[in-house]
Write a protein that binds this DNA or RNA. Sequence first.
DNA 1: ATATTTAAATACCAATCGGTAAATAAATAT
DNA 2: ATATTTATTTACCGATTGGTATTTAAATAT
Lengths: 207, 207
Amino acid sequence: MSINDKKLRGRPRVFDMDEALDKALAIFWKRGYEGASLAELTETLGINKPSLYAAFGNKEELFKKSLSRYTAGPVAFVKDVINEPTAFKVAERFLLNAAEFLTAANHPKGCMIVQAALSSGESSDIVKDLLIQYRYAYEQQLAARFEKAQIDGDLASDANPKSLAKYLATLHQGMSVQATSGASKDELFEIAKLALKNWPNKNKSSN
Amino acid sequence: MSINDKKLRGRPRVFDMDEALDKALAIFWKRGYEGASLAELTETLGINKPSLYAAFGNKEELFKKSLSRYTAGPVAFVKDVINEPTAFKVAERFLLNAAEFLTAANHPKGCMIVQAALSSGESSDIVKDLLIQYRYAYEQQLAARFEKAQIDGDLASDANPKSLAKYLATLHQGMSVQATSGASKDELFEIAKLALKNWPNKNKSSN
DNA sequence: ATATTTAAATACCAATCGGTAAATAAATAT
DNA sequence: ATATTTATTTACCGATTGGTATTTAAATAT
């Protein structure tokens, strides 16, 4: 018996909110913010509009909640990546995991944070800017990790942590576009391997 | 006097079609296909809908004509890049020109071919697939150039031309996302430089 | 002058957009 | 039993979507 099974007053909700959120996430992931219509959302979630609005607010809030579920679930591995022992291993795991994830068969191709509102009408500027913040956030996490690596001595002293982080973020974002365009997991692995060849390790000169 | 100034029958068109196409291009570039509404298009072009439809067909055809104008104009440099004498110089000019172009101040940030229909509603699948073809086309041009370079001997024999082309296309697509997210020209230059460090030249081992 | 051709302007169309008011149904509290 | 609370359902809202039929205007051909 779950901890939330205590009897609540009023008619009980007939759908599971987390399951519904997963379905909404899948649509936003595939269609983007503007491309996901309320008609498709309500149809897929199996609930009607007033129920959706009562449970989640409005389309924008439903998107934000889907986005939170996305970062807590499918892409939670990004947070683990910075725990790798060296800067190189951080980069390697970041790119290899991305190649795997962006082309996985059990969910939409590509990264929702990269693509859900890249170009859109003026009315979606809030969502567009929110996703820009999310992109910058993971880039910053990488940059902070590489600054630490430089202090630790496993990253060349003449390397630029911020540039390296942006380099990885750029590759990830490009790989996301590639995945959406039909690139295979192996093709993205090849790209990751190419990108890691010039990594500025401690003992190497970066020139 | 232009060669097309011979008198035509009927009421003369009051707007210049190429100028109108440039304005339409700017909107599709910034907003994407779905994000560009006919209201914004007609308002910016300074013509009303029936004139637009008589001149360009419909929204999808207007987009396709804008796209042709895009490839013939702003991104025509991509075709020149493959004329560089070595594979490395091709890669270098491709990435450096991209960094410059994607962040230029006189037009929207990012690349229209990359972003105009990455995620969208089902009704835009035709445009989405068309842009995927365009992306693949320039990647293939690079791959063909690198195959030639390998025969010419200025690219390491153990390098994979197709992977290198996809690597560059991926970087370009990622840089486009970065530009849209606010990255500066110098930041993209740094990424390009990083990406070129490991280039498999003739005399280097690619491992 | 008049007919013909082409474009522009006004007004409109059905369909879809995100969002909600009002009525009904299912649970608990008293 | 009844009141209260909450969810679902149906039906609707104004605004916007892409797209057009109809009328009017401006040019040339005869």
